[in-house]
Amino acid sequence: MIFLFSVAVLLIAFFAVRYYIFYGGKRDIQSETAAFTVTAKDIAAEFAADVNNSNKKYLEKPVVITGTITAVEGTSVILDQLVNCNFSDVKPSFKVGERATVKGRVVGFDDLLGEVKMDQCNLITN
């Protein structure tokens, strides 16, 4: 009886951990309300001034950022040379020099390059 109970608990734990690994971390950022709306220059300046407080404020939150597209590299779009937005697919409408508003999740700050990193990005306007 104890053996069967132990096996059942282990199976439940195994499938719960497996489910969390495969499905637990995925969020639909685009359906969430943006926690902040800022410019690329403002958010980069905040991170450069105080990374710890900026991480507490922005990390893992949906943010809307506006800036000028300075580069398109594969699936990444760089705004004002300060915010690196990673898209699942780059739309052909991205053109260097245009203003764009992007919504995505802030995943960190690269202090070596001075860039705010975002993923799950989606173009709102350009």
Rank of each mutant, 00 (worst) to 15 (best):
T66S: 15
K57Q: 12
Q81S: 07
N55H: 14
D80R: 05
T70R: 01
V63R: 00
N55R: 13
A48Y: 01
N52C: 10
E46W: 00
A49C: 05
D50H: 04
N53K: 07
I78W: 11
S54M: 10
K56L: 11
T68Q: 12
Q81F: 09
I65H: 07
N52L: 12
I69R: 00
L79Y: 00
S54F: 06
A48G: 04
A49E: 08
E60M: 07
E73M: 12
K61C: 06
G74I: 08
S54D: 12
F47E: 07
N53D: 12
A48E: 05
V72S: 09
I78C: 05
G74N: 07
K57H: 10
V63D: 02
V72W: 11
V64Y: 10
A48M: 04
E73C: 10
K56E: 14
I65Q: 11
Q81I: 05
E60T: 03
V64D: 12
E73L: 14
A45K: 06
G74M: 02
D80E: 07
T70M: 10
I78M: 08
N52T: 13
K57A: 08
E60P: 00
N55T: 15
T66D: 15
T75V: 11
G67C: 05
S76G: 06
V63Q: 02
T70A: 05
G74V: 06
S76Q: 04
V63I: 11
L79F: 01
N53Y: 07
N53H: 09
A71K: 14
P62L: 02
K56F: 12
N52W: 13
T68D: 13
F47S: 07
V64W: 07
D50V: 02
I69D: 00
P62F: 03
V51P: 04
T75C: 11
E46R: 02
E73S: 13
G74F: 03
V51W: 06
G74W: 08
N55I: 15
P62W: 00
P62I: 01
E46T: 00
D50I: 05
N53L: 06
F47A: 02
L59P: 10
V64L: 14
N55L: 14
T66L: 12
N52K: 13
Y58C: 03
P62R: 01
F47L: 06
N53R: 06
L79A: 03
E60L: 08
G67R: 00
D50L: 03
K57E: 13
G74A: 04
N52S: 14
E60N: 10
S54C: 10
T75R: 10
L79T: 00
T75G: 07
I65S: 06
T66C: 12
K61E: 07
G67T: 04
D80Q: 03
V51D: 09
F47P: 01
V72R: 05
D80I: 06
E46V: 01
K57C: 09
V64E: 15
T68L: 09
A48V: 05
G74H: 05
S76A: 04
A71S: 15
N52F: 13
A45W: 03
L79W: 00
T66A: 15
I69Y: 01
A45L: 05
T68C: 13
T75I: 14
V77N: 06
